[in-house]
Amino acid sequence: MEDRRARWQTAPLPRVTDPDPERYRSHRSGGRRRGSRWHWLLWLPVIIALFPAIFNRAEPTLMGLPFYYWGQLAFALLCAVLTAVVHLATKGR
């Protein structure tokens, strides 16, 4: 019985020292990070998703699919493109 317990016990993890706090500090005074104005564009999909009446309809149809389905797919693709644009615009910051 003791052999089974000893087999499943693991060695204690090594103690990790705290990382350099200056590495995580912002370049601005006070150490607080401020977002770019580009990041405000990321609120657009959140706000649109709060109004389901925008998508809750059947017309117009696209290849037989109601607007509800293809509109949501188009919205998801738009969100991906918008996220990529914001990422590329703020990449060097």
Rank of each mutant, 00 (worst) to 15 (best):
M1Y: 04
R5E: 04
A6P: 00
R7Y: 10
Q9E: 14
Q9T: 12
A11V: 11
A11E: 11
L13Y: 04
V16C: 01
D18V: 11
P19K: 02
D20I: 03
P21S: 10
E22D: 12
E22H: 10
E22N: 13
R23L: 06
Y24F: 15
R28T: 02
G30V: 02
G31T: 05
R33H: 09
S36A: 06
S36K: 03
S36F: 05
R37N: 07
H39Q: 14
W43K: 02
V46R: 00
I48M: 14
A49Y: 03
I54A: 07
I54P: 08
A58K: 11
A58W: 06
P60I: 03
L62V: 06
L62R: 09
M63W: 14
M63G: 12
G64E: 09
Y68V: 12
Y68W: 14
Y69W: 15
G71Q: 06
Q72T: 15
F75S: 13
F75H: 11
A76G: 09
L77F: 13
L78W: 15
C79T: 13
C79I: 05
A80I: 14
V81Q: 08
V81K: 09
V81N: 08
T83L: 10
T83E: 07
A84E: 11
V85F: 09
V86S: 02
V86L: 06
L88H: 15
T90F: 00
K91C: 00
G92P: 00
G92V: 10
G92D: 14
G92S: 15
